[in-house]
């Protein structure tokens, strides 16, 4: 499923909404999650999962082609942990 198919499904379920509003709704949800993580915040969606930011310490890396070492700065990366309910549903255990 891709973003446009998701929008389509929501639009079909909500015939009273304009397509452009459905697009805005779906985009707002994803944008809000990205913006929260850009601020260093967590987004916890019970049953679905939690988005958080993890810190990766600075390290000395190596260029795999040349073998020369390069300093890699500390950085922050997005992380997602699956919620309990969704994890169970994936394995056929409803509730």
């Amino acid at each position: 499923m891709i973003r446009s198919e998701l929008i389509q499904k929501i639009a079909e379920e909500n015939p009273h909404l304009f397509q452009r509003d459905v697009e805005k709704i779906v985009n707002t949800i994803f944008d809000e999650i990205v913006e929260a993580m850009a601020r260093g915040d967590r987004v916890e969606l019970r049953g679905f999962g939690a988005f958080s930011v993890k810190r990766r310490d600075a390290r000395v890396g190596r260029n795999p082609r040349t073998g020369t070492s390069v300093e890699v700065d500390e950085k922050h990366v997005p992380f997602f942990k699956t919620g309990k309910l969704l994890r169970n549903r994936l394995n056929g255990e409803e509730d």
Binding site: D21, K24, I25, E32, A36, R39, R42, L45
Partner: peptide, 21 residues
């Protein structure tokens, strides 16, 4: 880093604000 936790409520608040439902 502020380290706030957002929930469904914050997402629906954003939809409320942006779309006016």
């Amino acid at each position: 880093m502020s380290e706030k936790t957002l929930t469904r409520m914050d997402l629906s608040e954003a939809v409320f604000r942006e779309v006016g439902l």
